[in-house]
Design a protein around this nucleic acid. Structure first.
Length: 459
RNA sequence: GGCUCGGUGGCAGAGUGGUUAUGCAGGGGACUGCAAAUCCCCGUACGUCGGUUCAAUUCCGGCCCGAGCCUCCA
């Protein structure tokens, strides 16, 4: 297996440090509002990677955190006049609903920052003791100049960066590039007692401490959105490496590209945020998931109306092949080698999907029952790695998302029976009238050798 | 300005030093009462200018265009 490593800037062969325990940490959301489609790209991408790793290694420990203490959370809580727990549990629950809708399997651990304050304090103490951090005016700061490797992950020259720093430098910083590990809380803000007074952790130290607590000092894979490379992951790397006496923190750094809308970054300030909870009102979660996997994870993904429509049609074709195979004998055939090879080449999901369409075509052409059984099993197994095609085909075609107006199944069945009678009586005008009527109401009729079947069509 | 990554057929989107991506849309055909679904065939795409090479969309360089990051945004 090959994975692109941000630290080296190329695809490197991946071998776990310990094949008996493969470790992966992915930065999760800060739960202060509803998550948009871009926020779900890392969970979906790394869900696929986790599935792939689990197939190959007996024990994969996958951690994705939830950041539940943060200035934006504090602001939201203050705005609503509630405890931060009200805010964080609301949006964490919404996030989980989105994950479930997109078929994202649960991680092995989902640590929350507020439940890991002692390990965070402990790590900060160790950084101070080893001379990498210092306390000043209630803050604790990491002294970047004590870590020569700083900048290696993001390929930045620290001196130039510091020279070009455009942010006002806080007076308590020894050097402009130093970043905060702990900051003081005023009485009206959430805080925890610490050796440096009542306060709260900085953002970067959370992930370092939770990764250490759950996965140890060196992890195999660290993932997240491309925007986290700097400063978040650069800082994490500095903290963890220094706290662990120079041991490698993450052996592989993986970063997914952004989701854009009309080639623009999705951001509140731009006003082009597409929330998944809204999207789910119009499209099946499985189609959204496929939409997120149609491009390679490192490429930017431009999201538009066609993305979803396209994904739905693709699923129509794949599920259609499974449906037309009919009842086939169970087979334990696995995904073909070319499909696995595509995924093992830095998670090339577009190439892997192309293999699935080849399987679908072969399945559509197959006559022999044994061949059908095997091809259907292969297609399903391939789907299981991408988190697709796991429901009965009938269910896929019978679902209708959101809106009103579409006829209920019972009514459709009755009209189909009526049409069948008309067809038998050679009254094709009436039969076609029923079909056209249903089509106008969003139901497509198909006659097949197994009888007439129907499905809801989008738009 | 620095760093990272891109510009592929109508759209989406892989890949490759000389040979089919794949899906959708479109054209033709088979099947069908007519459709739909399915199958077969088709259009000969690689930003631009140079260089390397017997041969470049694929390697190298310049240029143009685009996205992201540059202290708390997935």
């Amino acid at each position: 297996m090959q994975l692109h490593n941000t630290a080296t800037g190329r695809k490197d062969p991946f071998e776990p440090r310990d094949p008996q325990r493969v470790t992966m940490y992915v930065c999760g959301p800060t739960v202060y509002s509803y998550a948009h489609i871009g926020n779900y790209r890392p969970p979906v991408v790394f869900d696929v990677l986790a599935r792939l790793l689990r197939r190959r290694y007996p024990n994969v420990v996958y951690v994705r955190n939830i950041t539940d203490i943060d200035d934006k959370i504090n602001a939201a809580a203050a705005r609503e006049g509630v405890e931060i727990g009200v805010i964080t549990s609301r949006y964490a629950a919404a996030f989980h609903e989105g994950l479930a809708a997109l078929g994202v399997a649960p991680t092995d651990h989902e640590p929350r920052v507020t439940e890991h304050i002692p390990p965070i304090i402990s790590m900060i103490e160790r950084l101070i003791a080893s001379g990498h951090a210092y306390a000043a005016e209630g803050h604790v700061l990491f002294q970047v100049s004590t870590y020569p490797g700083y900048g290696e992950l993001s390929h930045r020259d620290t001196r130039e960066m510091l020279a070009g720093a455009r942010v006002e430098v806080a007076p308590y910083k020894k050097e402009p590039g130093d970043f905060v590990l702990w900051k003081p809380s005023t009485p009206d803000l959430p805080g925890w007692d610490s050796p440096w007074g009542r306060g709260r952790p900085g953002w970067h130290i959370e992930c370092s401490a939770m990764a250490e607590a759950l996965l140890g000092e060196t992890i195999d894979i660290h993932g997240g959105g491309h925007d986290l490379v700097f400063p978040h992951h650069e800082n994490e790397r500095a903290q963890s490496t220094c706290a662990h006496g120079g041991k490698v923190f993450a052996r592989f750094w993986l970063h997914n590209g952004f989701v854009t809308m009309n080639s623009e970054k999705m951001a509140k300030s731009v006003g082009n945020v597409l929330l998944v909870k809204d999207l789910l009102q119009h499209a099946p979660g499985e189609a959204i998931r496929l939409g997120l996997l149609t491009g390679h994870y490192r490429q930017p993904l431009d999201w538009n109306d066609e993305t979803i429509a396209d994904a739905r049609r693709k699923l129509d074709r794949l599920y259609g092949a499974l449906r037309d195979a009919g009842e086939v004998a169970p087979s334990d055939a696995k995904a073909p080698a070319a499909f696995i090879a595509a995924l093992e080449d830095d998670l090339n999901t577009p190439a892997a999907l192309a293999e699935m369409f080849e399987l679908a075509k072969a399945l559509n052409k197959a006559d022999d029952a044994g061949d059908k059984a095997q091809l259907a099993a292969q297609l399903r197994d391939a789907g299981s790695l991408l988190g697709l095609l796991q429901q009965p085909p009938q269910d896929w075609f019978a679902q209708h998302v959101g809106d009103s107006g579409v006829p209920a199944a019972a009514e459709i069945e009755a009209l189909i029976a009526e049409r069948a009678a008309a067809k038998k009586a050679k009254d094709f005008k009436r039969a076609d009238g029923i079909r056209d009527g249903l089509k106008a109401r969003g139901v497509l009729i198909e006659d097949s050798v197994q009888g007439t079947r129907w499905r809801y069509v989008s738009d």
